[in-house]
């Protein structure tokens, strides 16, 4: 039971970050161009440039033609902007014998991510609700195993899952992978929902019980509408996590249904043919685009999500 508590510390700290500091503080206002400020902002801007540079390089490389890449400098902006690498990466880049580009991987990833997100969140939210409000004997033991299990390296559990999926006939199919994502998303999501539902005032729950509402009625009519923010956090966490997954995709699916990350790696690291760096970079950006959009659109909710999801590693 120690793990969830420690994570709570981290999670509650994040709330503190998110809150704006509004009380007046400090001595008299400092001059804008003090030496301290120049040093402080100078350092921050330098570091920011370091963090942004790879994204910039990737972007300009993807807009150059191959001759320009061979002659020029990776940091220089493109002289002649071309969108051909993007088109090629999306529609005609080859992996093995297939030459239909990353679009296939993209749609595979969509087909994997949507059911995985829905299933894992549905299961985990009900689990968390049961753990918070309908405690039964032994529930805490299973929950502790679940949380400790989040630290077990995946490699230890990969093969037994292969056998189980093979037995039920789902090995190599999209649904097999969906189940795997739901299993490995369960510890962190259950923790997230359990903590949230525990913080809901108990009187509300009791009042509903007095009115004769049962397990599912309370879940759907009271808990679900109240927990919408935490559902959003869970969705952000799962969409980025599942989209970025590589290991499970490569193990539990067949080449036709490889997710985008696996296909991207196969395109870029294929040994055959001339390396087309601009196409590779366009493909890399395309793969990173979905989590980046989620990240920039979600802002602070993403921070809350990773505070909870950090253990997922």
């Amino acid at each position: 039971m120690s793990d969830p508590a420690a994570l709570n510390v981290a999670a509650s700290g994040f709330e503190a970050v998110a809150k704006d500091v509004s009380d007046p503080r400090g001595a008299k206002p400092r001059r804008v161009l003090s030496r301290r400020n120049i040093f402080l902002y100078g350092t921050l801007i330098l570091i920011a440039v370091y963090y942004l540079l790879p994204l910039y390089v990737m972007f300009v490389t993807s807009l150059k033609g191959m001759p320009e890449i061979r002659l020029g400098n990776i940091f220089s902006p493109p002289v002649e902007i071309t969108f051909e690498p993007w088109v090629k990466a999306w529609a005609t880049a080859c992996t093995g014998l297939n030459c239909d580009g990353l679009s296939r991987g993209f749609w595979n990833s969509v087909r994997i991510t949507i059911p995985s997100v829905v299933l894992s969140i549905a299961v985990a939210s009900v689990n968390g609700y049961a753990l918070a409000n309908w405690r039964f004997k032994g529930a805490d033991i299973f929950f502790t195993i679940l949380i400790v299990g989040a630290f077990i390296p995946y490699q230890v559990m990969i093969y037994p899952i292969v056998i189980i999926l093979r037995e039920i006939g789902l090995y190599g199919s999209l649904w097999g992978l969906v189940i795997v994502h739901s299993i490995f998303g369960m510890p962190i999501l259950t923790l997230l929902f359990r903590n949230y539902f525990t913080s809901v005032p108990e009187e509300l729950f009791k009042a509903a019980r007095v009115d004769g509402a049962g397990f599912w009625a309370i879940y759907f009519k009271i808990m679900l509408p109240m927990a919408l923010p935490i559902f959003v956090v869970a969705i952000i966490l799962q969409v980025t996590g599942i989209w970025n997954d590589f290991l499970f995709g490569v193990i539990y699916t067949k080449p036709e249904s490889y997710p985008m990350t696996v296909q991207l790696n196969n395109i870029v690291n294929s040994v055959q043919g001339v390396k087309e760096y601009n196409v590779n970079m366009a493909a890399t950006i395309l793969t990173g685009l979905v989590p980046l959009i989620v990240y920039f659109a979600s802002g602070r909710l993403f921070v809350r999500g990773i505070a909870a999801g950090a253990v997922k590693g």
């Binding site: 570091i47 920011a48 963090y51 942004l52 790879p54 994204l55 980025t240 989209w243 970025n244 997954d245 590589f246 990350t261 991207l264 790696n265 890399t284 793969t287 990173g288 989590p291 980046l292 989620v294 990240y295 920039f296 802002g299 993403f302 921070v303 990773i306």
Partner: peptide, 13 residues
Amino acid sequence: TIFLYPFALSFIV
């Protein structure tokens, strides 16, 4: 936001 964005990217990317 700038320091954290790489964390949204996968290890492959």
